[in-house]
Write a protein that binds this DNA or RNA. Structure first.
Lengths: 255, 255
DNA sequence: CCGGCACGTGCGACATTGTCGCACGCCTCC
DNA sequence: GGAGGCGTGCGACAATGTCGCACGTGCCGG
């Protein structure tokens, strides 16, 4: 790759190595990397050795091939700032509120809680309190269930912290919660019916980066009778609105 | 941090910078980073400039503070190797073949193609060819649609490379494909009916890491009349088997 | 079973490269 | 309106990364 003055060459090369390893599912040999980047073997090896030392790549002991390391996994999630997410979701959240007729919340995972980073009031009602900055329980809200469904560590942490009952419908058994999260994962959206506050239901869907990583959740909340039918099932039209909004925000986030 | 002989200093320092940015949710100033790592301002700035150039960090135009960039988000995906995925999927793939009565394939994204990393024959029939290692088209197979649905870059790349028609049902229009992928994303599984080979249909579902990242797809393939009903809709029982198998593999991968 | 090849790895010398000191301009807070 | 702090850019030095070469090993073919 071309050398750009003022840029640190070894860092540019490291980036190229990481991208190369990320491009294909296969592990790569030193020679393959060196050839692909037009570098001498020694140089490529020196870079790989350092990247391995800092945990960005790992080497298979058997085949001696290199692949990306676990150290990168932790970095990705922090890449999306809450404020940034909020900025990109503003318009879509408003549109969702207008289409669904319910209040909209955008949440991110934050220390065993859902941190509400954005809140849009229900269009027809002005007597509501602004929830931005509030922290909601993970296991009892639709937003929280979505966030838990795509983060195994968060699920463990939440279970370990204890599943507090807020209503008689709150899921307090770890198996019931696990099943609910599996269902959430499978269908792609989350539901909570009177598990947090009596008479209130929520529908939420995940916001993803271009790589598929879940960085937040967006959802609506409102009276049970408006969000669900007589069998306590989510109304399909509302689900579609929520999922579509989440998809739009995801597309925006992906750039 | 201490200098280790044989390691490239600037890469070690870059790693420290990235970790520092990942540690806190706040954006950091050049001076804060420099002080935390014991570096001169100029040096820290030079590293930051390069990291920004390669997309690993971004600078807020207003506050001039730095945060992690989008380039890192997509790197986590390749942490899962194809062979590793194959190893974890072996038993589940066999079970899926037994339950569905159809042949099973496990595929990963590889350079505008689906790379088949595992293949289980249909239980009742021995006259089949082993597909492991074969590459299938992305836009015309159920496996490929699932992989495309969760990778925007791959979709762009596939469209750019041209949507070759294999049968008269192959999706060759980019809008039709986009709609199909949206549908795939929404319902959580993919379908292909005579889009690749006449008389053959496929049903596939995504395999995810604990973070929700899609690293592969598993699916069944077989005669149209066995996989779909008279309206060319996938048979729910088979879909359930495929989705369940994908979920099991995902759980295995996550652990 | 043995020879040859190709690969990963390590070392050392060179000079290219990153580092660091310094100074400029801008913004913010006294 | 002044002063301090910050981000940024430049340039010289030498410390640093780079590259050529060679060793040992594992694999494949004869």
């Amino acid at each position: 790759m071309s050398h750009v003055p003022g840029m640190i060459q070894s860092i540019e090369r490291s980036s190229a190595v990481l991208r190369l390893l990320a491009a294909g599912p296969d592990r790569l040999r030193v020679k393959e990397i060196a050839d692909a980047l037009g570098l001498p073997k020694s140089t490529a090896h020196s870079i790989l050795r350092t990247l391995e030392h800092v945990g960005f790549v790992e080497q298979d002991p058997r085949t001696a091939r290199y692949r990306l390391g676990r150290g990168l996994l932790d970095l990705g999630s922090a890449g999306m700032d809450a404020n940034e997410l909020r900025g990109r979701a503003l318009n879509w959240a408003d549109a969702l509120a207008a289409r669904s007729g319910e209040e909209v919340r955008l949440g991110v995972l934050d220390d065993n809680r859902v941190l509400v980073v954005h809140h849009v009031f229900r269009p027809d009602d002005s007597a509501q309190s602004l929830d931005t900055g509030v922290r909601l329980p993970l296991h009892a809200t639709a937003l929280g269930k979505v966030l838990l469904a795509y983060s195994a560590p968060a699920e463990e942490s939440a279970v370990a912290a204890g599943l507090d009952p807020y209503t008689r419908r709150t899921l307090i058994d770890r198996r019931e919660l696990a099943d609910a999260l599996t269902e959430t994962r499978t269908r792609g959206w989350g539901l909570s019916v009177e598990e947090w506050r009596p008479g209130v239901a929520g529908i939420a869907a995940p916001v993803r980066t271009s790589g598929g990583l879940v960085v937040g959740a967006v959802g609506i909340a409102g009276p049970v009778e408006r969000l669900t039918d007589t069998r306590r099932q989510a109304r399909p039209a509302l689900v579609e609105h929520v999922v579509a909004a989440a998809r739009s925000i995801s597309r925006d986030v992906a750039g």
